[in-house]
Every structure is written in C-alpha cells, then in structure tokens.
Design a protein around this nucleic acid. Structure first.
Length: 430
RNA sequence: UCCACAGUAGCUCAGCGGCAGAGCAAUCGGCUGUUAACCGAUUGGUCGCAGGUUCGAACCCUGCCUGUGGAGCCA
C-alpha cells in the first residue's frame, strides 16, 4: 500500500505511486486525461505523449473504464483539475483490464442500477452517501460513549414477536420456531436494569409488504434505553443526539455533501431544542388544514405526518398519543390515562418519522393487565414481566431508524441509497 | 393486499396500425487542457411472455410475468 489520493495535498512536488481504478478517460491525440479513484477520493492523471515511454502511452490508450492499475506521477496543484490537484503521469502498471463495465458515465434507470448495486457503490455519489453513513455511525458511538452509555448487543433470533404489531420473518430454530428480530428494545430494557444507560445498534427485519421510498425490509436501528429516566429527559437526549449528528456531518463531510448537492443551509438550522406538539394539537391542526378524515384516536398516516412536519424547518416531536394507537409497553400519562408518555420525531422536508420513543410501564400490576389485554401470556414473554418484579424503576428509551436519518441528512429521494445493499420488497440481489 | 404507471439495442429513450430508430457504451480512426470532452465511421434487436383482432401489430384488446412508487403498516 502506498500513498492514497486523500493524502496527495501533502505530496505536492514529489512523485507518488497509487493503486487506482480508472473512473473515466478523456483523450486527444497527444494528451490523455485519466479520471482516477482509489476509494479515498478522485484525482485527474495527465499523460503526455512526449513525456512518457511509448509503452506507457500505448497502455494508457488501452485503459478501459474500471480497469485497475498502479499509477506513478508528479503531484501538482492545478486550477484546471476537478479536485485542484493533478498527477503528471510518468509511469503506469496495469493490474487488470476491465471489459464492458456496465455502468457508463450516462444516465441509468433504477432497476439497472439496483441490479448492479455492487458496482454502483463505486460512483462518486454513492461513495459520498456511504461515507456520510459511516460518519453518522461513528458519531452515534462517540455520542453515547461520551454520555455514559454502553453498547449492548440484542439477539437477532428471537422466540417471540417483540411488539406483536408487525409481520415477522419466520425461520426454524432446529425443531422450534423462531423469528428475525424487528427490534432490540425489550432486551435493552433488561440491559438498562443491569447497566443503567445502554444502546444497541443492529439490523431489524420487517416482513411488511411496504414499497415506498421510506421503507426497507432490513434496516439498521439505534435503540438507547435509560434507567431512572422519564419521558421529558428522554426527549432532551433525543434532540441533543440528533442535533449533534447533523452538526458533526456538517463539520466533517462538506466535500461529500457537495458531491450529493445537499442544501446545507437547511441542516445548519438543526439545533436543539426541537419544537413539540401534542397529539391533541396535531389532530386539531390537521382538521383545520383539510384533513377531515382524522379524528381523535386514529393513528397518523404518511400524508398527515408530512403535513405536520412541513410546518417546521427542524424536526418536530409529536407527543402523548392515544394509548390505543401505540405499543403495549408505553406508560400512561398519570394525569390522563387515555394517552401515553411517548413521542415520534418527524424529520423536516417530508422524510417522516425518524425516531419513536416512550417512557415504559414500570408498574408490575399494570404490565400484568397489559399482558392480558394483548394476549401476551406466552411463556416466551415471562422474562420481560420479571423486569417489573425485581427492582422496577422508571425508564425510557427510543429507536432511531439509521437509514431514514441518513436519507434526511443527505436529502435523498429514496432510502435505498442510504444502505450499501438494500433489501426491498422483491429485491434480495445483489 | 389494494391503486396507478411502465417494459423497444449493453444503457437512456423515441416510434403509437404500413421497411426497427436516435444518443450513449463497445470497436476503428482523428485531435496537446479535457471536465458526462469533441469529430467521423462500424457493430449492435425474441419490441417482457402467451393468446386474440386485422390484409398487416412494437403500436389495438385479454391474461400473465417483471419492475417502479403510492396507500395501509412502520423506523
């Protein structure tokens, strides 16, 4: 391994050798421009006929898109080059000549690009998005480590449905039934009782036949859970965490945001605290704004969420939903039993719900009642009830959909670009 | 599961009842500052599949398959 393109600015005036792929080529009779990439960045190589060996000149002429080679040359600053730096090529050594690379520099359709996702990742746009994803992941680890959380891994194979609301992928566990996890939350509640503040980061699987720009069959979720933490404290952590992520991407990923053409002025506004409206207020707002179909007690659909979020240019919390519309484990408001201490965080610009969170029921008798109401008396749920039996404490947590957050931060049309190999309805290749 | 739209060259698309087309890619040639370079030439087809209507179907009709994005559900 030699120098990388990301390091060339510190090698101006000296000769370097870099392992690269040819992204594109433009040539004249006696000068060739090689658009080179090495995974860390892009740089333009210039091959001049009267300054290289004839063999190298001929080899450069033979280069095809995505051929791999070692290139040696002098690093120069040059305003005419796309990146500001240029390599005057003095020698090149072909590793492999690629034939008929499918993704050409022109436009392609969705189906074709998805069929070639393993190659599409090489494009500058996909490269930029996935580097931002990497930064969001690193930012998540840093944030929670810095705030006293420890990462605890939840199992992916489970013996029962975590929430019982969505369709699970069924599989066999030797001669028993098992399901792929759709959430690690219940396990995080157990972990919070052991470690205080915890978070999980792992994949979640939903066998829903959803096919919209906001849905993946397999997606990654960050699920913090905090003991001795009420709903209000949880909201403060959520808004601080999201604002930190956005500011970190703004600080560290300017070149990537530029490649994908993100309007960063919209991201610069993302600072805590975020506005909040209650479910009651949201229903009144919707009824006043042309949504006669919503009445108190109904859950919101995507058009309703979009209408609410459109009134803010930062994420907005919708709080205190009717208990009937939410999961069995959410804690009722002590002053108003019909609503629960929960919040959904809706991202701006129509990106929808990126966080769902709540304070959890800590009272053993109430949880027993919920078990009866929701028919959860299966032995596989026994352990979760026991968390309320041995030193129960107030606790809260939330789940962030990683790809939805990335889609919003990057301003993507579709969530499928926010994950390296998306699993979508009807697509499990490549 | 429901609704809507689409499927023609390797890719992106035009053609909408009368000879299968263009741009890009590929191949060959030209060009010393290109930025999805440009210029000339060549190659490239089961018009998604099956049936029907018609003198004649890529085009009209029916069914099926595949894809797209929207609903529901959710992060």
């Amino acid at each position: 391994m030699g120098t990388t393109i990301s390091e060339v600015s510190s090698h101006v005036g000296s000769e370097v050798t870099i392992g690269v792929w040819l992204a594109n080529k433009r040539s004249s009779g006696k000068i060739q421009f090689l658009e080179l990439r090495d995974g860390t960045g892009f740089i333009q190589g210039v091959v001049l006929k009267n300054e290289v060996d004839e063999a190298d000149w001929e080899e450069a002429k033979e280069l095809t898109q995505e051929s791999s080679l070692y290139v040696t040359g002098l690093v120069r600053e040059d305003k005419r080059a796309p990146s500001g730096y240029e390599l005057t090529v003095s020698g090149l050594k072909l590793i492999q000549k690629a034939h008929d690379y499918p993704i050409t520099p022109k436009e392609h359709g969705v189906e074709f690009l998805m069929d070639h996702r393993h190659l599409w990742l090489r494009s500058s746009r996909q490269h930029a998005i996935l580097r931002i994803r990497n930064e969001v992941i690193k930012g998540t680890y840093d944030y929670f480590y810095d705030h006293g959380f420890i990462k605890v891994d939840a199992p992916l194979l489970t013996g029962s449905a975590a929430e019982g609301t969505t369709d699970l992928f069924h599989t066999k566990y030797f001669d028993r039934d098992a399901y792929l996890s759709q959430s690690g939350q219940l396990y995080m509640e157990a972990a919070a009782m052991a470690f205080g503040k915890v978070f999980s980061f792992g994949p979640a699987f939903r066998a829903e036949k959803s096919k919209t720009r906001r849905h993946l069959i397999e997606f990654w979720m960050i699920e913090p859970e905090m003991a001795f933490c009420d709903h209000e404290e949880s909201l403060k952590i959520q808004e601080d965490y999201i604002a930190c992520l956005v500011q970190r991407v703004l600080k560290k990923c300017q070149p990537e945001l530029k490649v994908i053409g993100r309007d960063t002025s919209k991201l610069e506004k993302i600072k805590a605290p975020f506005p909040r409206i209650t479910y009651d207020e949201a229903v009144r707002f919707l009824n006043k704004n042309g949504f006669d179909d919503i009445k108190w007690g109904d859950d919101f659909g995507a058009p309703h969420e979009t209408a609410i979020a459109e009134h803010f240019d930062v994420p907005v919390f919708v709080t205190e939903y009717p208990a009937k519309a939410k999961a069995f484990y959410m804690k009722p408001d002590p002053d108003r039993e019909e609503v629960v201490l929960c919040a959904d965080l809706l991202a701006p610009e129509g990106y929808g719900e990126i966080i769902g969170g709540s304070q959890r029921i800590d009272d053993l008798e109430l949880m027993k009642k919920r078990y009866e109401q929701y028919h959860l008396n299966d032995p596989s749920y026994k352990w979760y009830l026991e968390l309320r039996q041995y030193g129960s404490v107030p606790h809260s947590g939330f789940g962030l959909g990683l790809e939805r957050a990335i889609a919003w931060i990057c301003g993507l049309e579709h969530i499928r670009e926010a994950i390296p190999f998306p699993r979508l309805l009807n697509r499990i290749y490549p």
